[in-house]
Each structure stands twice: as C-alpha cells, then as structure tokens.
Computed example of a mutant assay.
Amino acid sequence: MALKLAVEEVGKDFLIPVIDRVSFGVEAGEFVCLLGPNGCGKTTLLRIVGGLEPATRGRVTLDGEPIVAGQPHQHKVGVVFQEDRLLPWLTLEQNVALVLKPLGLGAAERAAIARRYLKISGLVGFEDYHPARVSGGMRQRTAIARALAIEPDVLLMDEPFGALDAQNRRIMQNEVRRIWRETGRTILFVTHAIEEAVAVGTTLVMLSARPARIRELIRNDGRTDRVKLIDDLNTMIMEEV
C-alpha cells in the first residue's frame, strides 16, 4: 500500500541540531502517535509535517507531493492545537464555518458542513453557544470539528488534551478514537503521556532525547499486553532523560 504521509531523513537545527534524520511512513487511515521526552522536538516535527515550519534537511511528502513551508499545497492539512483557539465572539457553529470561507462555499453550505461535524464531535444542541458558555472539553471538540470540516487529507493534533483535567482527558481520548473510526481520517498525534498514546494510537513512534531520532516504532494492534507496553515505553523514556 502506498504511504499517505512520508517523513524522509528530516532534520532541524536551531543553532544546534534538535531533530536528526527522522524517517517514518503513515498509511491512509492510520492513527500515529509521536511520543518522547519533554523538549525532544515532537511539536517541531509536527509543524514541519504540517508545512508550518521548514526542515533544515530531508523532506515530507503527502500523497507523494512534497510539503514545503510557506508554499501552497494541493492537499488539505487540518491542525488541532493544545489551545482551542476559538474566536469568543462567534458561536461554535460560526467558528467551524469560518474555516470554510476560503473554499468559496455559500453561507448555507458552510453552516450545513459545520453542523455535520459538530454532530460528529458530539455537540448537537450547542451550535449556537459561544465558547465562554461551554466546558474546555466541548471547546476542544469544537476545535476538532473545525479541523475536520475542511475534510483534510491528514489531521495533525498537538497535545490537544494537555490543558484538560484527567476525567475530561479520558473522555476526549475515547471521543477522538470514535471520531477517527467514523471519519477514517489519517491522524498524526503528539503527546507526552504514554498511557494516552497507548489508548488512542495504532502506531507509536518513540523519539529519543535531543537531537530527536527514532528510538522505536511500535504497532499497537492489541496483541501486546497493554500494561507491559506502558511499562516498556516508560523505561525507554527514563533511559532518554
């Protein structure tokens, strides 16, 4: 099967190397988690994949086409950040519909698409609420709906549940797995929480301490005992600190 997303020998320098020769591939419909020690370059790598930051070396391709920072790309990339970044003066529906304006869609079509993805994200009945009136988890669901509304070829998620409390974080982990199953989107998900990566990811990419390299690539297909997998990943992290 052809790769949906390919990261090839990517390196990044900020005076010193922070990412060094990272290579991995993502097949269509995979849910890949990037994890590693704090400060190892996970978010920087995600930004390079999304075309938000240039690589110093190597390249990233989406459906075979190189992604180059600052240059237009024929494919769509959705991004969910740790902060929801909703506009407080707009309703949840209006926040989602806003990203569809550059696509040249009419107001009615934008509203219909926004409502559809708010429904997928479990927000039926809250379309006309403003962000200040809903919980942090609901705001983050809206951010996910907004990213999905453009029907991206790949969805990038940068520690999207990091600001939530433990209970809401667990709820959102279940929700993002459900949304992934329902939409079939290809997802690249950054987290520093090992239990979270094991809970949501089909493939786990463990990065080393800086300069980040691939320490381990693990298929999380349910065949490995979950407790043992978490213990093994914790051991890897401790060895990198």
Rank of each mutant, 00 (worst) to 15 (best):
I48P: 07
E53M: 15
E53I: 02
T56V: 08
T56P: 12
T56H: 06
V60Y: 01
L62I: 13
E65N: 11
P66V: 13
V68I: 15
A69M: 06
Q71S: 11
H73K: 03
H75W: 11
V77W: 01
V77Q: 02
Q82H: 07
E83N: 15
E83I: 00
L86N: 00
L87E: 02
N95R: 06
A97F: 05
A97G: 13
A97Y: 03
L98W: 10
L98F: 15
V99M: 01
L100R: 02
L100E: 07
K101Q: 12
P102C: 13
P102S: 13
G104V: 11
G106S: 05
A107M: 00
A111V: 01
A111T: 12
A112K: 12
A114F: 03
R116A: 02
I120K: 11
S121E: 07
S121W: 03
G122H: 08
G122L: 07
L123W: 00
F126K: 13
Y129A: 15
P131K: 04
P131M: 05
A132S: 15
V134F: 03
S135Q: 10
G136L: 06
R139D: 08
R139C: 09
T142W: 06
A143Y: 02
A145K: 02
L148Q: 01
A149E: 02
I150Y: 04
E151N: 12
P152M: 01
P160Y: 09
P160C: 12
F161Q: 13
G162H: 14
A163P: 01
